[in-house]
């Protein structure tokens, strides 16, 4: 245990925690926007898997990381169009539709991977970029300011999301259709258009999260996410539908995961004990839900399809 509490190991753990938090953060921030508009998307995991596969495949074929990121976002956008059509245009039940998207993404990414790639081959990873001056701060610098660009982007998107929701007309519309769509409708705000746009944002960020995941790992395999997308959805509840809260949740997750990995590497926990430790994040989520369930209130119209009557 004392091996763990050395400065260098702690810094390395923090650094890897922040890296591991990145996909969670991206997906959860997007999902926050979606849920604030009243739309729950349980398909995040499926979207992440699909975008992760396509990003991986692009890097494998072209070696171009930024093209891969772009493709990841585009895949998310396409899945958003599908999900928006199902839930906003057709008014289908959101919970099960999302599960459909998940199963579809799981199957298709698996299928395409086995057909187009076969065995996992490592690809280029996202390089870390040092921020001048700040990265030279002892200990803190390497942990916080020697990360990849998508990590920086994820953290930049926190204030962006806050600003979007709090200070723009679009954000005001999103919040109103998520709380009382009839009121918004009676004032001429298009509930469908607003929700559709929020879904597109949510899904393209899920796509970005998939790209970030695979480009940080440098490898793809079927069911790469292992339920990360579902945790990302839970983190929105965890963060009480606020970007800052969501960030805290994502960081907590990243750090817990990183600590477990570090302990395993240091032999602090036995090999099969790591399976038990791997239960921690999900158990933690359930406990958090129990504690928070009665204290925070979800957007009032969350999961409710809107129709005039």
């Amino acid at each position: 245990m004392s091996d763990f509490f050395t400065l260098s190991v702690l810094v390395a753990t923090a650094a890897s925690g922040i890296r591991l938090a990145t996909p969670y953060l991206l997906a959860s921030l997007g999902e926050t926007v979606g849920q604030r508009s009243g739309v729950l998307n349980l398909g995040v995991d499926g979207v992440m898997l699909l975008s992760a596969f396509f990003s991986y495949w692009v890097v494998l074929k072209t070696g171009n990381l930024w093209l891969a990121v772009l493709v990841g976002v585009a895949v998310g956008l396409v899945m958003g169009l599908l999900y928006g059509f199902i839930t906003v245009v057709l008014n289908a039940t959101q919970g099960i539709s999302g599960i459909g998207i998940y199963i579809f993404g799981l199957g298709l990414s698996d299928l395409l991977f086995r057909r187009q790639v076969g065995t996992p081959k490592p690809v280029r990873r996202l390089p870390d970029v040092d921020i001048p001056v700040l990265s030279d701060i002892p200990h803190l610098g390497p942990a916080l300011f020697q990360r990849n660009l998508l990590t920086y982007l994820a953290f930049l998107l926190i204030p962006t999301t806050m600003f979007l929701l709090g200070r723009t007309t679009f954000g005001l519309n999103i919040r109103s259709v998520g709380e009382n769509p009839s009121a918004a409708d009676s004032l001429g705000v298009s509930v469908r258009r607003t929700r559709f746009a929020a879904i597109l944002i949510a899904n393209s960020m899920a796509g970005l999260a998939g790209a970030a995941l695979v480009l940080q790992l440098g490898i793809f395999q079927p069911n790469l996410t292992q339920g990360m997308g579902f945790i990302a959805v839970a983190l929105v509840y965890f963060g009480a539908w606020r970007p800052i809260g969501v960030m805290c949740g994502a960081l907590l997750y990243g750090l817990v995961n990183a600590t477990v990995l570090q302990w395993k590497a240091l032999g602090i926990i036995p090999v099969n004990g790591s399976d038990l430790a791997a239960m921690a994040p999900a158990v933690l989520t359930i406990l958090a839900l129990v504690v928070l369930a009665r204290r925070v209130s979800a957007p009032a119209a969350l999961t409710r399809p809107f129709s005039r009557h």
Binding site: G100, I101, Y102, I103, F104, L106, L108, D110
Partner: peptide, 10 residues
């Protein structure tokens, strides 16, 4: 088959 299942649910 998994992908088809997803389509059917949707």
């Amino acid at each position: 088959a998994v992908a088809l299942n997803g389509i059917i649910v949707i």
